[in-house]
């Protein structure tokens, strides 16, 4: 089943890069928002996650802060 995956990241953050690599390796399609460049999306991320750290990933409406591999795997149904 395809998941709806949104990524809020900055161009420079190491864990944003790792997160995107992880999604690519698992063939997960996602939409990326560069919150360093897009102020409206930055505000949206803060509202959704209640915090100011990147990356933030939204999987089918569920918010996960940081590159939390076990939680992300679970939300995506990966073993």
């Amino acid at each position: 089943m395809a998941h709806t995956v949104l990524v809020y990241s900055t161009a420079t953050c190491p864990y944003c890069i790792r997160l995107k690599q992880f999604l690519a390796e698992n063939n997960i399609a996602y939409e990326n928002f560069d919150v360093g460049a897009d102020r409206a999306k930055a505000d949206e991320m803060v509202k959704k996650s209640g915090q100011l750290g990147v990356p933030v990933i939204e999987i089918d409406g569920r918010i996960i802060v940081g590159f939390d591999r076990p939680k992300i795997q679970q939300a995506l149904g990966l073993s």
Partner: peptide, 15 residues
Amino acid sequence: KNRGVTYCATCDGPL
């Protein structure tokens, strides 16, 4: 922490 306090300018600076 992560509500304005950060230890990584490279990561969170652009916010």
